[in-house]
Design a protein around this nucleic acid. Structure first.
Length: 421
DNA sequence: TCTGGGGTCCTAGGACCC
DNA sequence: TCTGGGGTCCTAGGACCC
């Protein structure tokens, strides 16, 4: 008896989050925009039908809004993150083991649960998540992650499936794979898709039947794994506990062009603070930091981008230290006369606390600094983000991203709870 | 006319994901 | 006026070492 996994995917996740708290959004076209109200990153089915593509710059499809009464939202990650947590907790109560794959998807381990009836169990999961959180989900079941993904797609595309599709042991599995174009396979992006079509490999069935050596040569071992998974031979492990991040990036586009070094410094300090918080949350320290800045590449004006990288003599998680480095780097690469669009910082060479050079010297982290960071993290965790912040981040700056269509933080702010009349 | 073999580490670039 | 953000993995090739 082989492995069985389910891929549970929230339908139009960000849109559904908005709908949970505003029922007037049901049945009408809704879109959610990326940070800075830049691009469309989520669409309701009604919005998809109007031809709004994923990733379209918002200003290009804004005219459709008036014509079709599209409801539009800036992304509200406080809300989406919290809804995600609720969905994942509900799923965790349904199965012995799972892997949270992204903010809106999880792989569930169903091996050994066949006696419940897999489709039946999928329907149970859907009903429970819908009932407990209000989130509509689709469930795809298969003998490998890739096939579970593929089954999920079928569940979503075919209303008669009722949101659940199981491809495990399906009598017409070849027909099903033949109906899936290579570009819709998990792990096959646009580049590989073009290459495959050029070589006459058009469907998932074609790829599953291609010779191993050829697939490996053209698509590395990653492609080979995908091909095997399509044959129902699992090659990808379940990861129940997410491994610690090897790099942490924090960057944002500005709401308007920024020219002065002072404002860039504030932004860099704010992003460094956020990255350092993430670093400490996974109990890590860092040995490398890069700060970068760039102008708006879409504008016909002088362009400049650059980066400065530092290696630290010993690992740290101390925010003020990292801010000093980011500032030193920024001073080094900053040039006057440009309209900057974005700065960001990246932490790399991340080690777990107690690993690496610390042991070598037996000393390392200053306990008073560590206690200070722990206190700051605890206060911000308990009373909300930026309850305590660093002076270098500035206050009420005007460079923050645009979020002109923001919904309330219904679930994470006492002041913005939904009202029942 | 001749010009080793093998190993490791690092980096840049390319591909993918949501 | 207006074009996101944050990750992972693999490979080839160069540097360097013995």
């Amino acid at each position: 008896m082989g492995e069985v996994v389910a891929l549970v995917d929230c339908n139009n996740f960000y849109v559904s989050c908005e709908r949970v708290f505003d029922p007037s959004l049901w049945g009408v076209p809704v879109v959610v925009l990326s940070n800075n109200d830049g691009n469309v990153i989520a669409r309701s089915n009604e919005a998809k039908q109007l031809g709004i593509e994923m990733g379209t710059p918002w200003f290009k499809c804004a005219p459709l809004v008036a014509r079709h009464g599209i409801r539009v939202f800036s992304s509200n990650y406080a809300l989406y993150g919290d809804m995600s947590r609720r969905v994942m907790e509900t799923l965790a109560g349904c199965v012995p083991a799972m892997e949270v794959y992204s903010i809106d998807e999880a792989f569930l381990y169903l091996t050994g649960m066949e006696h419940f009836g897999l489709e039946e169990y999928g329907r149970f999961i859907r009903t429970r998540v819908g009932g407990w959180t209000g989130m509509p989900v689709s469930v795809g079941i298969g003998p490998s992650k890739t096939l579970a993904k593929l089954a999920n797609r079928i569940a979503k595309k075919n209303p008669e499936c009722g949101g659940v599709f199981n491809i495990t042991g399906h009598p017409r599995v070849d027909d099903i794979l033949d109906g899936i174009a290579v570009e819709n396979i998990w792990g096959v992006g646009s580049r590989y898709a073009r290459m495959l079509h050029e070589h006459g490999v058009h469907s998932a069935l074609d790829l599953s039947r291609a010779p191993d050596a050829w697939v490996r040569k053209k698509m590395t071992v990653m492609g080979l794994r995908t091909a095997w998974e399509l044959r129902g031979h699992p090659c990808m492990e379940m990861e129940e506990a997410p491994p610690p991040k090897k790099a942490i990036v924090s960057s944002r586009s500005f709401g308007r062009p920024v020219e002065g070094l002072d404002e860039l410094m504030e932004a860099a300090a704010a992003y460094t603070t956020r990255a350092a918080e993430k670093l400490r949350r996974q109990n890590s320290l860092v040995c490398g930091l890069t700060v970068f800045l760039t102008t708006n590449r879409f504008k016909p004006e002088p362009q400049y981008s650059n980066a400065a990288t530092f290696s630290l003599p010993e690992p740290t998680g101390y925010t003020p230290h990292l801010i000093r480095l980011a500032h030193a780097g920024l001073r080094r690469i900053y040039r006057t006369g440009y309209r900057y669009k974005k700065v960001g910082i990246m932490l790399f060479d991340i080690v777990e606390q107690g690993e690496g050079q610390l042991d070598l010297f037996g000393g390392g982290v200053d306990p008073r600094r560590q206690a200070l960071m722990e206190t700051v993290d605890r206060l911000n965790g308990r009373f909300g983000k930026s309850t305590v912040s660093f002076a270098a981040e500035g206050r009420g700056s005007s460079w923050h991203m645009r979020r002109e269509h923001l919904s309330p933080r219904y679930t994470t702010s006492w002041l913005e709870l939904p009202l029942v009349r």
